[in-house]
């Protein structure tokens, strides 16, 4: 199978049995000894009927703080019987903006989230921002979303000095903003 003009391989659902992949403990991004400003991020995922999504693979990627020998910026969590997920990680800082004219505007602190599950033919990409951080009003990605109510679906509530929570809705009222990359 030699491809003269390669086209990206088609996505297929992760299905209900992905938990065979080893992942236990992967939702703690300090698992390789990272120290610093540790935060927890919790959330809950529901479907278009408001029922919990109990078989999702939720992944977190953050480019800040930069990866090093003790921190690879990646976590994976299985949603539980109530659709909940949680991550322990280092608090991200602002990062460089987007290419071009808007490039001087930094992006507010955020983490990137990938949701994969039975019934999702492709991964869903979204972001989590954090209540109380500066720069949401000028963030070049948040500002792509005109409706303030939709923008708010990306901003986790502070539930403690170092704890944040965000509910995610795959479909329907309050639907989370998902991104095309």
């Amino acid at each position: 199978m030699t491809l003269a003009t390669p086209i990206a391989t088609a996505s297929q659902t992760i299905g209900p049995y992905w938990h065979l992949l080893p992942y236990k403990g992967w939702n703690d991004l300090t698992r390789f000894g990272a120290t610093g400003d540790v935060i927890t991020i919790t959330g809950r995922i529901v479907d278009g009927a408001g029922d919990p999504v109990t078989d999702a693979c939720v992944e977190l990627w953050q480019p800040s703080p930069a990866a090093d020998a003790h921190f690879d910026g990646f976590g994976r969590c299985a949603s539980d019987a109530e659709g909940r997920f949680s991550f322990t990680t280092l608090r991200p800082g602002p990062v460089a903006g987007v290419h071009g004219a808007a490039g001087n505007v930094q992006q507010a602190p955020h983490v990137a989230i990938t949701i994969m599950a039975r019934g999702l033919m492709k991964a869903l990409a979204t972001r989590i921002y954090f209540e109380g951080d500066a720069g949401h009003d000028i963030d070049p990605v948040l500002n792509l979303i005109e409706d303030p109510a939709r923008r708010a679906t990306l901003i986790a509530k502070a539930t403690g000095p170092a704890a944040y929570h965000l509910d995610m809705v795959l479909q329907g009222a309050g639907e989370t903003v998902f991104f095309a990359i």
Partner: peptide, 20 residues
């Protein structure tokens, strides 16, 4: 299984930043 899990809203196209 896609019926209650597929988003109804259009995806928001994001530029390629360091995050992506």
């Amino acid at each position: 299984s896609t019926k209650l899990r597929a988003p109804k809203q259009a995806l928001v196209q994001v530029p390629t930043s360091i995050t992506e």
